[in-house]
């Protein structure tokens, strides 16, 4: 009875494992009245990697942006349905946006470090979070950079411009920036699509390690990557102009016994 467990106010350590971290109920999104995502419902398990795959324009980015309400940046965007992150209803009007977005980090397809120093990139969000002690921010920054394996590479260059890093380093910096806020959920929108295979491999290893502490939602165009990393896979598809969830299951089910004909075709496409 998951809905019941979800409403218990104090988390129970044992049952917490099975409680969904993210619950989405009949989510529909439209831009300028044009439906982009229709009636998506699903529950994502905590500390697992869920991959979201599907053809271009099926609403994957839109779905991610709903989870931390980045959709609010688009005044032409209307969201219906309900989303719970833990016990927080994300689209409730009284939801504290900055705190929600710190709990639900988002990594963009194209690395987007701030055009300032590497140090400033990490200190700014920490300061906003209320970490007023410089030493504490510095320690948190180092810890985050260490976790993404960037500290040794750039220790001498912390005051250099972040935009001078390589693409792969920039993307890891962006991940470090999100991790520094200690998020429960990390959303990644095709994080490797702008990177070379070596840099992608580094990020994949990183995601694999993060999985023990963080719930990860990974949008990817790369089915091989989904197969390598994901515990669960959600397949989105664009039907009559609006994106829908066509199949959601664990990885082995999706890749070995896909049920929906669209999924079958999509997976076959990978093999063929």
């Amino acid at each position: 009875m998951r809905p019941l467990a979800l409403r218990t106010p104090t988390p129970q350590p044992l049952s917490a494992v099975t409680r969904p971290q993210i619950r989405v109920e009949s989510l529909s999104v439209s831009y300028d009245g044009q439906l982009a995502l229709q009636e998506v419902s699903l529950e994502l398990r905590p500390r697992q990697i869920t991959a979201i795959v599907g053809p271009s324009g099926c609403g994957k980015t839109t779905f991610l942006h709903c989870l931390n309400r980045l959709t609010d940046l688009h005044p032409n965007c209307e969201v219906r349905g309900k989303i719970w992150i833990g016990n927080t209803e994300a689209h409730a009007s009284n939801c504290d946006l900055p705190s929600l977005r710190r709990r639900v980090g988002l990594i963009f397809q194209k690395p987007n470090p701030f055009p300032s120093s590497i140090r400033q990139n990490l200190h700014l969000p920490l300061k906003e979070q209320g970490m007023s002690l410089r030493e504490e921010r510095e320690a948190t920054m180092r810890d985050a950079l260490q976790r993404v394996g960037l500290l040794d590479e750039i220790d001498q260059r912390l005051d250099h411009s972040a935009t001078h890093l390589s693409g792969g380093q920039q993307q890891r910096l962006c991940i470090a920036r999100a991790l520094a806020l200690d998020p429960e959920v990390l959303l990644l929108d095709e994080p490797c699509s702008a990177l070379d295979p070596m840099s992608s491999a580094v990020i994949e290893d990183l995601l694999h390690e993060l999985r023990s502490k963080t719930t990860i939602v990974l949008v990817t165009h790369n089915l091989a990557q989904a197969r390598r990393l994901a515990d669960d896979v959600a397949v989105f598809w664009k039907e009559s102009a609006a994106g829908r969830l066509v199949e959601f299951s664990n990885r082995d089910e999706i890749f070995s016994h896909p049920k929906h004909p669209l999924t079958q075709a999509y997976i076959r496409g990978e093999r063929g």
Partner: peptide, 8 residues
């Protein structure tokens, strides 16, 4: 968008 996503 990056700033907003970090809760700024």
């Amino acid at each position: 968008a990056g700033g907003a996503a970090l809760g700024l």
